[in-house]
């Protein structure tokens, strides 16, 4: 396993695109969070806004780039045929997928570990300037810290979900399409559907809506699921995608 990890890490490290994508994740996430924060303001009576969701809004944008990074880790090899060299050199296919997953998780945690705290810091300055009360913006306060840690984990889970889908479909365009569809279809559907029970149901099974519950810091009782249970929904999608992709990788001809 150590040699598999070393090989996959070397692959990622020696492609110029990796660094650019990681930088894009950070820049987009921070920029979108800052923009969202600049667009809300509070009145003297109080604030209806959730500082966690606003300060970490960029995660919803950055996740698209995370998905691309993860998809390319697999389909970049299928597109060129290099996957045959990979599987000839490393015949334990589950091991190859596990090594790719580990390297990708590390990269995403690193990018998220920068993007999320920076987003919160920038957002805090902007919100304070907009007249936000300082208390809920305390980054060491329980809910906001949970939102931050949860958002980093959310991005890692999105990466692994994308890896599983890409392993199953083996084509860049299809894989990116399927993953972005999964991520952005449910929120759009919930807006369209008028029936409240259906809305709640869609929310509970949506990797994005349920997953991002981990960012909530106010009115937690109104959520259909608790923040961590919501992240669990995304984790279930991820597990299913990895399991399906891994199974197909094992049984299919390369």
């Amino acid at each position: 396993m150590r040699t598999y990890l070393h090989a996959e890490w070397t692959k990622v490290r020696t492609l110029a695109g990796t660094g650019r994508l990681l930088l894009t994740i950070i820049v987009l996430t921070v920029a979108a969070s800052a923009t969202a924060s600049a667009l809300v303001s509070c009145t003297a009576e109080g604030c209806g806004h959730d500082p966690g969701r606003i300060g970490l809004f960029g995660v919803q944008v950055g996740q698209a780039v995370v998905a691309v990074l993860a998809v390319l880790a697999v389909t970049g090899e299928y597109g060129t045929g290099m996957i045959r060299l990979t599987l000839a050199a490393m015949p334990r296919r589950t091991g190859v997928l596990a090594a790719k997953a580990a390297v990708l998780t590390g990269l995403t945690l690193a990018a998220g570990g920068v993007a999320v705290p920076v987003s919160l810091l920038v957002s805090r300055r902007v919100l304070l300037g907009n007249g936000f009360p300082p208390d809920p913006l305390d980054p060491t306060g329980g809910p906001l810290l949970r939102a931050a840690v949860g958002s980093v984990l959310y991005l890692a889970l999105v990466a692994l979900l994308s890896l599983g889908v890409a392993t199953a479909v083996r084509d860049s365009a299809t894989a990116v399409g399927v993953v972005l569809g999964l991520l952005y279809l449910f929120p759009a559907l919930i807006l369209v559907v008028s029936d409240e029970d259906w809305q709640r149901f869609l929310w509970k099974v949506s990797p994005t809506n349920a997953g991002l519950a981990v960012q909530a810091t106010t009115r937690l009782a109104d959520l259909p699921l608790t923040p961590w249970a919501g992240l669990g929904v995304l984790a279930a999608w991820t597990a299913a995608a990895l399991l399906g992709g891994g199974l197909l990788l094992r049984i299919r001809d390369a």
Partner: peptide
């Protein structure tokens, strides 16, 4: 032709060696 074009010849062999 089965290699990723962005990698140098040496790096292409390097990941194989690591594996």
């Amino acid at each position: 032709g089965a290699l990723q074009p962005g990698r140098t010849a040496r790096d292409h062999l390097l990941w194989l060696a690591r594996s």
